[in-house]
Structures are given as C-alpha cells and as structure tokens.
C-alpha cells in the first residue's frame, strides 16, 4: 500500500465520525521505483491531506516531507521537491503492518501490501 492510498482510506466502522487518518503500524516497508510524472503530482496535490501524508511518510521512515504543505509554486518550480514528493507518495509501500482506526483502535491488517478493510465480525 502506497501513501497515496493511505491518504484516501478512512475507517469504515459504523458510527465512527473521525475515521481519518488511519494510524500506520509498520512491520515492513519496501520501495519500488516508478517513473515520475510531474502533471500527476501537481494534479493530485490539492487532494492530499498534507498533515496525514507528511506524518505517514515519517512513520514509514522518510523524513523529507515538511510538516506544512508546500506552496503550489514549489510544485511548479522545484523539481527536487517534486522528486521527493513522488518518492513518498508513490514509491514507499507498507508491505506488512496494520492500519488502526483513530477512534476505536480497530486494526485493519496489511499483508503482502494489501489492506483488508472488511469488517467481517462486526458486519451490520
């Protein structure tokens, strides 16, 4: 699971009002290189919850994302920053670990890179 996906996932437990962001429990992080696409990064940027993303990147062991969101102009001009943003968003994978509901602590396992969001036992 990439941090882009982490940024799009919330707890789906019934009644939970603050299900985002899910807390990451890391067992294993892997890096997979992919080609950078500046347009994609600029287009996705406004949709990213920056605090959740930069916190998550640190938990994943990557310290290069500032706590405050960068100015959009940085994304236009600073190619070095774009490279780091790309790496944190799309190249770091939570391979093994879990995602925890911030409200209930319910654990959603992540195995072989796949988050399991099924709520079997408490299905309503």
């Amino acid at each position: 699971m990439r941090l882009l996906t982490h940024n799009m996932l919330s707890s789906n437990i019934k009644g939970v009002t603050n299900g985002f962001p899910l807390k990451i429990q890391v067992e294993k992080v892997v890096e997979k290189q992919v080609e950078i696409n500046h347009d994609f990064l600029r287009n996705i940027f406004p949709k990213i919850d920056w605090k959740a993303f930069s916190d998550a990147s640190r938990i994943m062991g990557y310290d290069e994302m500032p706590e405050e969101p960068p100015e959009p102009s940085v994304l236009e001009l600073n190619v070095e920053f774009l490279g780091k943003f790309h790496h944190a968003l799309l190249e770091l994978h939570l391979e093994e670990g879990a995602l925890l509901c911030p409200e209930t602590g319910r654990k959603f396992p992540v195995n072989k890179g796949i988050p399991n969001m099924l709520l079997l036992e408490d299905k309503v």
Binding site: M1, R2, L4, T5, N7, M8, L9, S10, S11, N12, G19, F20, K32, V34, D49, F108, K112, G113, I114, P115, N116, M117, L118, L119
Partner: peptide
C-alpha cells in the same frame, strides 16, 4: 489480480473491501 498484474508488468493499488468501503469519504 496481483499475480496477473505482475505477469504483465503493471501496477495498481489493491484493497480487499466491500465495494469501495473505506475509500468513499476521501475519494
């Protein structure tokens, strides 16, 4: 799906969920 994608050299994020549960709010 993961195996099929690997065999073709493509990548998508995969989530084991009911329809899009967990993604609906942020996505």
């Amino acid at each position: 799906t993961q195996e099929t994608m690997e065999a073709h050299g493509v990548y998508a994020e995969l989530i084991n969920t009911d329809i899009a549960s967990g993604l609906e709010n942020r996505l």
